[in-house]
Amino acid sequence: GTGSNILSALQDLFWLLKSKVEKQLQIISVLQWVLTFLIMGIACTLILMYILCTDCWAIAVLYLAWLVFDWNTPKKGGRRSQWVRNWAIWRYFRDYFPIRLVKTHNLLTTRNYIFGYHPHGIMGLGAFCNFSTEATGVGQKFPGIRPYLATLAGNFRMPILRDYLMSGGICPVNRDSIDYILSKNGSGNAIVIVVGGAAESLNCTPGKNSVTLRNRKGFVKLALRHGADLVPVYSFGENEVYKQVIFEEGSWGRWVQKKFQKHIGFAPCIFHGRGLFSSNTWGLLPYSKPITTVVGEPITIPKIDNPSQKDVDFYHSIYVDSLIKLFDKYKSKFGLPETEVLEVN
């Protein structure tokens, strides 16, 4: 009757409104992280300098005193917060793309691990969502394993940003930090290193599956020194969420990027995603493309205090082969043709 029709219409309206609200929350959650990635460090530094010049200067002085006292905390495992890692905003972040974490093998809590994450993409969105939040259930999939996503040490010199990053279990990608976690923090630690780094980000573009790995062997040497097992990780779709202007080798643009990479540690990219209000316009929001991160089989690594170059090369070759096998095994399941080949540079 009329009553049931009205009820049905109201239910349809409710679900429509709920869907729209959820989509807006997803956009807001992703936007806040993009802005965090791009400007939070600089913005917080400028705000702190401004406060020093106002009547509230004492607040800035107190924070700076705390900063000096707390300076080495990022190098000692940081200060993770399960509360922050479980924020609801990260679930909206996950659902925007969506992002998914796939487990292929169990990890022992009696071992430590170095995850090699590939590819970098523009912002490493899959790495952040999967390993610095609990949105995709990393703690449930790998019980007893504490993931630490490693990023540029310079980020931890930025006020406020450093504390925000540490709350998610993010640590500096330097030897002091990694040595501490793998030697003085017990077992069950998994350091996630985006091996290709800034160099790899310069070549990421939709439709391209390539990694910068041939001459990246430092992470293997660290694994050998600590007896930490290596785990290849490939994120299908990481390169699809932004479009980038790729400068040819030898061009002025690539020269500038390499200079930044050499002296500062990151390479500026000219990229774009979708607009804030429309997917048909350009903007800073990434495109809503699925990102599926597959955690491969751990490679058992012996502990060698002073590994030779031969040792490093041997286990590096095993790692490269394992990554290629992981890619080949899962590529067709996540939208790639069987003929797709992983390009290892």
Score class of each variant (00 low, 15 high):
294 V>Y: 03
309 Q>F: 05
121 G>I: 01
67 L>Q: 15
267 A>Y: 04
19 S>R: 11
160 I>Q: 14
141 K>E: 11
233 V>P: 01
76 K>F: 14
226 H>P: 01
297 E>V: 04
324 I>W: 03
4 S>M: 12
12 D>Y: 05
127 A>F: 07
207 G>A: 01
152 L>W: 12
282 W>V: 11
223 A>L: 04
208 K>E: 12
65 A>N: 14
197 G>P: 03
123 M>P: 01
65 A>C: 15
86 N>R: 15
12 D>I: 07
92 Y>W: 11
229 D>I: 00
26 Q>N: 07
13 L>T: 08
204 C>D: 05
1 G>A: 13
22 E>F: 04
146 R>K: 12
91 R>W: 10
285 L>H: 06
293 T>S: 02
88 A>I: 15
60 A>Y: 06
326 L>D: 01
205 T>P: 00
182 L>F: 03
99 I>P: 04
217 K>A: 02
73 T>D: 05
317 S>L: 03
44 C>F: 13
40 M>I: 09
207 G>P: 01
56 C>G: 09
163 D>N: 15
314 F>Y: 10
292 T>M: 02
3 G>D: 14
299 I>M: 08
49 M>T: 10
195 V>M: 03
45 T>Y: 13
9 A>Y: 10
26 Q>H: 06
122 I>Y: 08
112 N>Q: 04
277 F>K: 04
222 L>W: 10
151 T>G: 11
62 L>H: 13
59 I>H: 13
20 K>Q: 09
130 N>D: 15
334 F>P: 01
80 R>F: 00
305 D>T: 14
95 D>V: 09
297 E>G: 02
279 S>V: 06
264 I>W: 06
1 G>V: 08
218 G>V: 08
320 V>H: 06
15 W>G: 05
122 I>L: 13
61 V>L: 15
222 L>Y: 08
238 E>S: 02
40 M>S: 12
330 Y>A: 04
191 I>V: 15
164 Y>D: 10
331 K>H: 07
82 Q>C: 12
334 F>W: 03
276 L>C: 04
147 P>C: 08
289 K>V: 09
9 A>D: 14
170 I>R: 00
204 C>K: 01
292 T>R: 02
6 I>F: 11
27 I>H: 02
52 L>W: 12
132 S>C: 03
179 D>L: 13
258 K>P: 00
6 I>S: 12
286 P>M: 11
310 K>W: 03
52 L>F: 14
16 L>G: 12
276 L>F: 10
